[in-house]
Design a protein around this nucleic acid. Structure first.
Lengths: 340, 340
DNA sequence: ATGAAAGCGCTAACAC
DNA sequence: GTGTTAGCGCTTTCAT
């Protein structure tokens, strides 16, 4: 008859295999310096008694959990809604995929309030995660500085504003905007406008100034500017205003695809043909960009690759705490479709 | 001068406050039965020496981690790509939001290969998570049965197929389809078609049969059927085929919004006006549904609420392991816009 | 290459 | 209400 069973421990494995707990541990953790014969016996013992290592015990002594905190920093109160945005989803995908190659995992935190930010930081301080990945796109987000000051290993997605001595990955947003400007200029557009994003997003600012500078380089000293908030509605409104201000417009760069979709609608309502009367370029290469007619020419960013690199940088930092902070900037690419 | 500091432990707190470690522990864990005066002294001590609890040590003895594994089960090789789909994002949002109210968190796993499935299961068995949330939408996914047989607490998103004695949340997909049928019937549509989703998704099957049955109830015995794979392109192709087979079509139900968007395009290309010539209804209430012209009438599902409920059910199961498995079905709602 | 032994920091009985 | 105590299961020097 079956004895009342506790769940088997390393001790049991060791006894069963006739080795010490230390050796059993070495085998479990895949260390090389173990006699092949013993290793085999340990492996058999593990299988025969159905041993499963205890993660908490390992973490307690090794001070490593194999877990990384992935902190999504939103404006206060943005709540769970944010996750519906593929931007976050793609980053999660990149992070999770990178981690699992190393047998690690991510725990997702939402930092949209002072309490939530503290909880996220606490998680790492309590040893619930080995380090943190902070997706923080807003200027003056307190989160990066909190982690920095607490001495908690962290890498950011997006350059902190104001700047901080901390590693981050980011896109060359200005280059993306320049790609759009180049395209418009190449089509011969001379009266151009841009629908900019919220001023509190450094990325939006970079896209705006990047566009202006690049058009300037193409001999176009003035660009009409309207602001939106990254929604289609705001893009439509902005485009309507732009059309009123500059009826002879022949090229438009929207700081994201959603606003470009709205702009497209306004343009079509106004009887302008895209791209013949007005060329239009978006940013992000999101799904909506592929669903409009004409389909949107846009700027794509390698979010998954950026997320994976961010993860690697954290792992490097964990392996060598002395590693100095480092930025890593990715290049956007122009996706040519029908709207420009 | 400052002594060489270890990181402070509960022991240090206890000494500083002049109480036992047990009392200090009670205060840290917010237990009620502690003298108010002592509690204050402990709190002061914590602040003054900068104590931070160690999660691994707590987990080791309490056998609780406060972490739940959120396992995204995709078809093999679907990789990180899947996360770009707002479907997953919304679920993650619902889960994370629900958990954080209880000071818990989720770790995201991708189960798209035999190894990944084993890793996910192992995570819980090693005590890396207290239980699992399995988002498994494909028929014959081995994942749910694996967790069930391992005796690991788990709750599913979507009814397992074949059925299993395990708790799950799901949408009444057939009711959603019926909502679409009712709408079409109310508009007087008599020659209707549906663009169905992949046959390996139980949800897609339910939407198809639900639609057929409801139209039948409205006195329409036959529904034209074409299959798509949930992409806009497949929807466009399906619609083109449907138009060829039944040129007098006056109503179409697509099993998701993306296919509806494709169908809309095909319809417009064929010179049919939507909704005047042909009424069109989608499913999901996704972003693209709001960006087309006309905007899509569609069926929405409360994914965040479903995810939150799934999470609660797991927590209930954790609190009472004897709790019998239970399904929880949510109602879809018709979102009236312009296409039908 | 292997084993002995010393904790890692905490919770939960249990006794008072 | 408070303290004492016995581990939780593992990794990791340190000898050998």
């Amino acid at each position: 008859m079956t004895p009342a069973r506790r769940t088997p421990t390393l001790e049991d494995v060791a006894r069963e295999a006739g080795v010490s707990r230390a050796t059993a541990s070495r085998v479990v953790n895949g260390q090389e310096n173990v006699d092949a014969g013993l290793r085999l016996r340990v492996i058999d013992a593990i299988a025969s008694i159905g041993y499963v290592p205890n993660a908490a015990a390992a973490a307690l002594v090794s001070r490593r959990t194999g877990t990384v905190a992935l902190v999504m920093s939103g404006s206060d109160g943005s709540a769970g809604q944010a996750f519906a945005d593929p931007f976050f989803g793609r980053i999660i995908g990149g992070v999770v995929t990178c981690l699992r190659d190393r047998s690690m995992r991510a725990t997702v935190q939402l930092a949209d309030s002072a309490k939530a930010r503290n909880d996220a930081l606490d998680l790492v301080r309590r040893g619930g995660a080995d380090g943190a990945l902070l997706v923080s796109t807003h200027a003056n987000d307190p989160l990066p500085r909190m982690f920095l000051e607490a001495g908690v290993p962290a890498v950011l997605f997006a350059r902190p504003s104001p700047r901080l001595p901390i590693s981050y990955v980011d896109l060359a947003h200005d280059q993306g905007a320049a790609l759009a400007a180049d395209r418009l200029a190449a089509r011969g557009c001379r009266t151009v406008a841009t629908i900019a994003g919220p001023a509190e997003l450094p990325a939006a600012i970079d896209r705006l100034t990047g566009f202006e500078h690049a058009m300037e380089a193409h001999g176009v000293p003035y660009v009409h500017v309207a602001r939106g908030n990254f929604t289609a509605e705001s893009g439509e409104r902005a485009m309507t205003a732009l059309l009123a201000a500059a009826p002879d417009l022949d090229g438009v760069f929207a700081a994201n695809d959603l606003m470009a979709v709205g702009a497209l609608r306004a343009l079509q309502l106004a009887g302008r043909s895209v791209p013949d009367d007005v060329a239009l370029i978006g940013f992000d290469d999101s799904q909506p960009a592929q669903l409009t007619s004409p389909r949107l020419t846009t700027i794509s960013q390698p979010l998954e690759a950026m997320a994976a690199r961010m993860t690697e940088m954290l792992l490097e930092r964990l392996a060598d705490p002395a590693k100095p902070p480092e930025p890593q900037i990715f290049r956007p690419v122009l996706v040519e479709r029908e709207s420009a």
